[in-house]
Simulated assay, not measured.
Amino acid sequence: MSDAAPALIIVLITILLPPVGVLMVAGCGADFLINICLTLLGYIPGHIHAFYIEYVYFDRRARAREGALTGRRAPAVYSERVQNGGNTGYGTM
Rank of each mutant, 00 (worst) to 15 (best):
M1E: 09
S2R: 06
A4Y: 12
A5S: 11
A5D: 09
P6S: 00
P6G: 00
A7F: 15
L8E: 09
L8A: 11
I9C: 06
I10F: 11
L12A: 14
T14L: 09
I15L: 14
L17K: 14
P18D: 14
P19D: 06
P19T: 10
G21N: 03
G21K: 01
L23N: 06
L23Q: 09
M24R: 03
A26Y: 07
A26G: 06
A26R: 03
A26H: 06
G27E: 00
G27A: 00
G27D: 02
C28P: 13
G29K: 04
N35S: 08
N35M: 07
N35Y: 04
I36H: 04
C37W: 14
L38D: 07
T39D: 11
T39W: 12
L40G: 07
G42K: 09
Y43M: 10
Y43T: 09
I44M: 15
H47S: 15
H47W: 15
I48F: 02
H49I: 13
I53F: 10
E54W: 03
V56L: 02
V56H: 01
V56Y: 01
V56D: 00
Y57T: 08
D59K: 11
D59C: 14
R60K: 05
R61K: 05
A62L: 07
R63T: 07
A64G: 07
R65V: 03
E66R: 10
G67Y: 05
A68I: 14
A68G: 13
L69E: 04
T70D: 10
T70N: 06
G71S: 13
R72W: 12
R72Q: 14
R72T: 13
R73A: 12
R73D: 13
R73F: 10
P75N: 04
A76K: 11
A76Q: 13
V77W: 10
Y78K: 06
Y78V: 10
S79G: 02
S79W: 00
E80T: 04
E80V: 07
R81A: 05
V82P: 11
G85E: 00
G85D: 00
G86T: 05
T88K: 04
G89A: 05
Y90T: 03
Y90A: 05
G91S: 01
M93I: 07
